[in-house]
């Protein structure tokens, strides 16, 4: 009985000391979670979440002060990834997911003012002064910055059209 008490007390002390030492010696500078979260975010610094760039959003997410549905360009896949990472439940059934979107320049309205391509965080818009601009769909993150600055409402977001390379079967209807 005494031997058991003694050994357990000693064990507890030794482990406690070890942990205490490790907490000081192996202290982590900053929150590694923030870095991991930032790596998951699109990184286009579009600011649609209301935070100054993706780092700010990642910090808020790590603190738990921002909902995981904050990032529109990330869409549903990002929400699912964040939910798994942070171990929180997300009610995305109410979220109207319009699917992947992409910016488009209406050629009839574009006056070639170059405002949109100057503001695009991923250089997805090409153009020159007094020339009609166009969008590289592969580079567009649908952040919407170009829509905000366009003086003639020539840029807009459209659902990414399906091509033979990207089309796939829709989900079957669930049995009634």
């Amino acid at each position: 009985m005494i031997a058991a008490l003694l050994s357990l007390t000693l064990l507890g002390l030794a482990l406690g000391l070890g942990l205490g030492y490790a907490a000081i010696r192996l202290k982590v500078e900053g929150n590694p979670l923030v870095e991991e979260l930032e790596a998951m975010l699109p990184g286009s610094q579009c600011g649609q979440c209301g935070f100054p760039g993706c780092t700010g959003a990642a910090m808020a997410l790590a603190e738990g002060s921002a909902p995981i549905t904050l990032c529109p360009p990330g869409g549903r896949p990002l929400i699912e990834a964040l939910a798994a990472k942070l171990g929180v439940e997300a009610d995305i059934s109410a979220l109207a997911d319009s699917g992947p979107q992409v910016a488009e320049v209406l050629e009839d309205l574009c006056i070639g003012c170059t405002k949109c391509y100057k503001v695009c965080p991923t250089d997805a818009i090409m153009g020159a002064a007094k020339q009609i601009h166009m969008v590289f769909r592969e580079a567009c993150t649908a952040c919407g910055k170009c829509v905000d600055v366009c003086p003639t409402e020539a840029t807009r977001m459209i659902p990414l059209p399906a091509t033979l390379q990207t089309w796939y079967w829709s989900k079957p209807e669930v049995a009634a």
């Binding site: 286009s44 869409g75 896949p77 992947p100 965080p121 997805a124 580079a139 993150t141």
Partner: peptide
Amino acid sequence: LKMKNEATKKLADERS
């Protein structure tokens, strides 16, 4: 989408 995100992140980094 993951590959596209990686590519656009690189573009955003290069731009900044």
